[in-house]
């Protein structure tokens, strides 16, 4: 996105800045596409995150599953979805968390659904 364009409200684009900020987080998440890494993550999550050199802020966001914060720190949803696959956390819960809504409100207000 060009710098002279007003960014779209509440729509973080995965650009140079986010890509640099979130590189290690995304690299860690990418590795969860392989079973041995999923096992290592489950066995000792903190040690696994440390092995990818995550800074304290990012590590904390992952460990409490703060999806909004992970995106703010440069995480890209397509990579960090592999963390959610381990839990597993439904994508609608991740959407709701970023919108700052309960899952129920999110489904009704954003997705136009009355039930799950």
């Amino acid at each position: 996105m060009s710098d002279d364009k007003t960014p779209l409200a509440d729509t973080p684009l995965f650009d140079r800045k986010a890509g640099i900020r979130g590189y290690k987080l995304n690299k860690m998440a990418m590795s969860l596409g392989e079973e041995p890494n999923r096992k290592a993550f489950l066995a000792d999550e903190e040690a696994f995150l440390d092995s990818y050199g995550l800074d304290a802020e990012t590590k904390a966001a992952v460990m409490v599953r703060d999806w909004h914060e992970m995106v703010r720190l440069g995480g890209n949803l397509f990579f960090i979805l592999k963390i959610s696959a381990i839990d597993p956390t439904p994508i609608i819960a991740i959407g709701a968390a970023q919108a700052g809504m309960s899952v129920e409100d999110f489904m009704i207000q954003r997705l136009g659904k009355r039930n799950g």
Binding site: V71, L77, G95, A96, A99
Partner: peptide, 11 residues
Amino acid sequence: HQLQGARAGFL
């Protein structure tokens, strides 16, 4: 669709 940011769930 939008998966990221506070506008997540935009349709």
